[in-house]
Structures are given as C-alpha cells and as structure tokens.
Amino acid sequence: MRTRESTIIRHWKVSWRAWLVFWIVRIFVKPLFAAWPTTDRGIAALGHLEKVVDRLPRPKGVSIEQVSLGGVPSELITHHRRAADSLAGATILYFHGGGFVFCGLATHRSLCSVLAARAGVPVISVEYRQLPHGGIGTSIRDAMAAYTALLDTCEDPSKIILAGDSAGGYLAMKVAELAATEGLVTPAAVIGYSPLLNLALEQHDPDYMARDAYLPMSQVEALKDRWVGGPDPIVGADSPIEADPRLFPPVFFSVAQYELMRPDVEAMTGLLEDAGQAVETHVWSGQIHAYPVFGQVLGESMTTIAFSLDFTRRALGYRGRHSAA
C-alpha cells in the first residue's frame, strides 16, 4: 500500500526481511557505531570493512573494470544488455555513502551492478577521498574531477545521471550545483538514496532524530568539525538545501520513514517543486538509512531502484523544467 501527496509518495507495507534488518541494525549496529571512536585510528579501523567486503565474490552477470577518472580511482561496471529507450547512451556516475569516513567501491558494488543491469548503461563508481585524507571539500574536489573527466569520455555528455546514497547523495547534488554555476554541461538527472542534504542536522527535533535505526546523532556531531575542515574548502553552498533549487536537474529521492535525512529530503522536495523543477520522493516505512544499498536482498530496495530508473527515463525523455509524471 502506498499513498501520494504532491510529489512525495509514502509506502507503508514492510517485508519480513526489511523488518528483520531494521531490528538487527537497531539492536546491534547502532550501539557499536555510537561507541566507535572518530579518531584517525578509529576511522582507519572502519576502513578494514572495505577490505573484508572486497574479498567477497563479485556480482555475476556484469563486467567490472578498474579505471581512473580525472585522476580519481573508480570502477566501471557494465552489463551485456544495452538500453534501447531514453537511457540509450547514458552513463550513471555513482558516489558511495559512508559519512565521508568509510565504505567504498566494494561495499557498493552490488548496488551499482544492479543499476547497470537494470538500466542497461555503464555505471562508474567513484572512490573519492574521505577522512582522514581530507574533509568534505576534498571529497567534492574528487567528485568534480571525476564528473569533468566523464564529460570528455562518455558516450553522450548530456546524458550523465548522478547518483549516490547518504554522503554520496550530498556529492551528487553538489556536483549538479557546481556544474550549473561553473557553466559545464549539466547532468540529466540526480538520484539520491537517503541523501545528506544538510550539514546542520542538529537543527532538527532530537526526539525524531533519535529514532534512526542505526545512525547516532552523537557521531554526526563529533564528525562535523572534521567534515568542514581540511585543505579544500566547500565550494558553493555548504549544504545542497541552501543552494538555489533552480540549479538542479530532475531529482529522485528515496528515504526511510525514521532516519536523520528525512526532514531535509522532504524540505528539499518542496523547494524543488516550488521552483518548478522535476522531483519525485519516496518515503518508505520500516526501512533503514540508505536501504537501496542492500540491492537484491530486499524487495523494497529493488522496487526503489526500479522507481529511480523509471524517473530518469522520463527525465531523459524530456529535458528541462517539468513536473514529475
């Protein structure tokens, strides 16, 4: 069952797998994250998670190639099927989540493989620098370097789709903003799975924020100074929600009912709609932050991925300001 109000679609049915994931994460993972030190040593220890995941069997049915995009290590994932609809000639540039401290190509390889297979287009996953190697400004610098290089190498630069979850959703929106302000070819669309749209999360109701299944606000507050520090400043608006909404292409959002990102996702949806920009947002009950990363494990993840690709097909079928179908 789902209900719709304006461009926000709410989904209420929860599968048993999603229910199980929610409570496992709530009971075991959130307390671990809350206690994890945000020192360089603690962040480095989290990096071992990426190495462990990288040893797991790789997704079948896709080709995976290590590439460099603008000097940034990346991974090109392709499927033998090629899009024959409005996505033909498109490329998805994906920025993984992880709070600018952990995760990488391996942790998001399954999701990117699903996107490549379902869309029938190349997906390039970007391994941008994170803490302790640089703050958010450094991450943005790498993301822009990758996007700028892709404009010169992809099949059709007018058909680049930016995508990302959590911190990666922040980068996708920032690249779209900066491409517009710097006079570059702008992306055709943005997909944000539980995107971080506001660095000032502490401004929201603390009782609501405490209901997030596994992201503790205490760690967000501990990391904030390190996010905005570093050798590279944040160019443009500090947070995507502070940018001119007219700068953005058609945008698709998904978010869990109870998570840190939801207030700003819904607020950003309203800003984009008021500015006449195409936007579609899905709010899912019983899910955790960035649940599409689970890929084929959760039915809700696969459905959300399908919705996001359907949205981009409509966006590429008609470029410019328009209302979501």
Rank of each mutant, 00 (worst) to 15 (best):
W227M: 06
E242I: 02
V29C: 01
K60M: 13
I9C: 07
L69K: 00
Q287P: 05
P57G: 11
R58Y: 03
Y94R: 05
S110I: 11
G229H: 04
H108C: 04
S74H: 09
G320A: 05
V283Y: 00
A45D: 02
S63C: 11
P231H: 13
L93H: 07
I136V: 14
E266A: 06
V235Y: 07
A44E: 13
E75S: 13
A275F: 00
L223R: 04
V67K: 11
G299E: 12
A290V: 13
W16F: 14
V220H: 14
G104Q: 01
W19H: 13
Q277Y: 00
V265Y: 03
F253D: 03
G270A: 06
P206K: 13
D142H: 04
D165H: 03
A256Q: 04
F311L: 06
L93G: 01
R82K: 14
G61R: 01
S323I: 10
G89E: 01
I161V: 15
G89F: 03
I27A: 14
R4N: 03
Y128T: 10
L69D: 02
D54W: 08
A324T: 09
A243M: 09
T138E: 12
Q296W: 10
Y318H: 15
S239K: 05
A146V: 11
Y318Q: 14
I136R: 01
V283F: 03
G317T: 10
L105K: 04
M302L: 15
S110N: 08
F311G: 00
A306P: 01
Q287I: 10
G168W: 02
Y170W: 11
I305N: 02
P59C: 10
A18M: 15
G135D: 07
G135T: 11
I161G: 01
A84Y: 06
L151N: 00
C154I: 09
W227G: 00
S15W: 13
H79L: 09
I24N: 08
P231L: 08
G47K: 11
T181M: 00
A306R: 13
E65T: 15
T107S: 15
F102G: 00
